[in-house]
Amino acid sequence: MTWLWIGLAAAVLACGALLPVLVRRRHTAGDEEISARARYLRLGHYVDIPEPSTDPEAATLLRKARERWHSAGAILATASSEKDFEMAERLAGQGLKLVRQAYRRLGLPGPE
């Protein structure tokens, strides 16, 4: 009977020690993180072109879009809250708007 109680106590202690390890999860903002990273990657696809020399306004728009891309990337590198991911997504969205304007001026198909 004593061995039963010792075994039961050992099992309870083992579960108590393992529980925090098994339950511990990295906090993520879920959908916000996925959406922000997707928009950031999409923007990166469009800003990775040489600056046009024929249209200075388009070049300026693309430069501003690249700034938004870099800023969103910097935020995503350390993001840990919904607010961080929302900010990164908003910046990437602004960059995509600028890309649309630049590509329209250049007569290129851009993001929709």
Rank of each mutant, 00 (worst) to 15 (best):
V23I: 11
L19D: 04
R63W: 01
R24V: 03
A29M: 10
H45F: 15
G16A: 04
G7C: 07
V47W: 04
A10E: 01
I49H: 01
P50F: 03
T54K: 00
T28Q: 08
V23F: 07
L41G: 06
D55S: 07
A11C: 03
Y46N: 06
V23H: 04
C15V: 12
R42Q: 05
L61T: 00
R24M: 10
L8D: 01
V47K: 10
M1P: 06
V12N: 06
E32I: 12
E33L: 14
L43C: 13
L4D: 01
D55G: 03
A14F: 02
E57M: 00
R25F: 05
E57R: 13
T54G: 00
A38V: 12
Y40Q: 14
A9Q: 01
T54M: 02
R39M: 13
L62R: 06
R25Y: 09
A58G: 05
L19N: 07
L18M: 14
T60E: 03
K64W: 02
E51Q: 10
R24Y: 08
M1L: 11
L41H: 13
P20V: 04
L43S: 09
A11R: 07
C15S: 09
H45T: 10
S53N: 04
Y46I: 12
P52W: 07
K64S: 00
A10W: 01
T28I: 15
C15P: 02
L62K: 00
P20I: 07
L13F: 12
V21K: 13
E57I: 04
A9W: 02
I34G: 05
E51F: 09
A10L: 13
A58T: 01
A36K: 15
L22D: 02
G30Y: 05
R25E: 10
